[in-house]
Amino acid sequence: MNTIVTGTCSLVLALLGWGEVEHWRASKRRLGSAVPRHGTSEAIVVLGFRNRGNRINAVNRWRVRAGLRSLDRAEGRLVLSGGPAGGGRPEAELMADYARGVCGYSGELLVETESRSTWENVRNVIPLIEDADRIKLVSHSLHAEKARAYLWRQRPDLATRLVKARDYRFGEWLLIKPALALLGLRNLRRIARSSVG
């Protein structure tokens, strides 16, 4: 019995550790190389998650907080992206209400309310981030990497300005990181095999 318990615990710990490592690795991939060291502006793009109904869900609340903690500069702008993919109100509007009302964010904030997929999120925010010296895409780490891959495909000139966001934190979302890693790695493999998003 003790062997079964020990084996099960070891397997669970290994799985949780694997999920953590995959997210950490993803947070460092597909970043730009031509980012100006002393650029004065940055755009933090927060990608919405399918929100059913007219109340912001837990995932979108977390993504807004991760976006806010990714702001490094006074000239930073928060760009919230997401249409009404799962409910009545666009995800970007729900996230904007949360950023302003609950989190107390008072800086520059732009919303993009038409997107229904990650490819569209990236495509539709391009006019809102073209002038930024530094660009951060915020979501869980593998989804953010997927968005960075899409920006490299759609606008490689802008992708050279990609810098690391603060969406990865050790232990955060620990129990679901393995599932998110499996889904994320599958999606990244699909991107690598396809010629479009």
Rank of each mutant, 00 (worst) to 15 (best):
S81P: 06
A147L: 08
L15G: 03
R100N: 09
L94R: 01
A132P: 00
L175Y: 07
E42P: 08
G19H: 01
E42C: 11
S194H: 15
V122Q: 07
R77F: 00
G101V: 02
A165R: 03
S194E: 14
A159D: 04
G83Y: 03
R186V: 13
T3Y: 11
R116Y: 12
V5D: 12
G76K: 00
L78R: 00
R69N: 02
P156Q: 14
W119I: 05
A144N: 06
F49N: 04
L174W: 06
L109G: 04
A96R: 00
L13G: 07
A165C: 09
C103M: 15
I56V: 13
G88V: 11
R65A: 13
E114L: 13
E91L: 05
S194I: 10
N54H: 06
H38S: 14
V138Y: 01
S141G: 11
G83V: 01
L128Y: 12
R100G: 07
A165N: 10
L174R: 08
R100E: 12
E22D: 09
R153A: 06
L11G: 06
G86F: 05
R89S: 06
A74M: 11
A85M: 10
L13R: 05
S81R: 02
L11P: 04
L137D: 01
K177M: 06
L80V: 03
V125P: 00
Y150H: 15
I129E: 04
R123G: 00
A74W: 10
G87Q: 02
I44P: 01
V64E: 04
E120R: 07
T3P: 08
V59C: 13
A14S: 09
N54A: 06
G7Q: 08
R193L: 10
L180G: 00
G171N: 12
R25M: 05
R153P: 00
R52D: 10
R134G: 08
G83W: 01
A26F: 01
G53S: 06
T118I: 03
P127L: 08
L13P: 06
S141A: 15
L31E: 11
S115K: 00
R69Y: 04
V21Y: 08
L182M: 10
G48C: 00
L174K: 03
T160W: 09
L31D: 05
G53R: 03
I191C: 07
T113S: 08
A179P: 06
S70T: 09
G7K: 08
K177V: 00
Y150L: 15
H23A: 04
W18L: 12
G48W: 02
R55T: 15
P36M: 13
L185I: 12
S115V: 02
L175Q: 04
A43C: 09
G67T: 03
V35Y: 08
V46T: 03
C9Y: 15
L68R: 07
R193W: 08
A96W: 03
V35E: 07
A92E: 04
E172M: 07
L109K: 06
N187G: 12
A99M: 03
S117M: 12
W173S: 13
V163C: 15
G197T: 12
R50G: 07
V64G: 01
R134S: 02
L109E: 03
I135K: 05
D157P: 13
F170N: 12
L174I: 11
G67R: 02
G82Y: 03
L110A: 04
V59E: 14
L188A: 08
N60A: 04
E130N: 10
M95Q: 05
P178F: 12
R190S: 13
L16M: 01
L110W: 15
R55Y: 14
A179E: 13
E112Y: 01
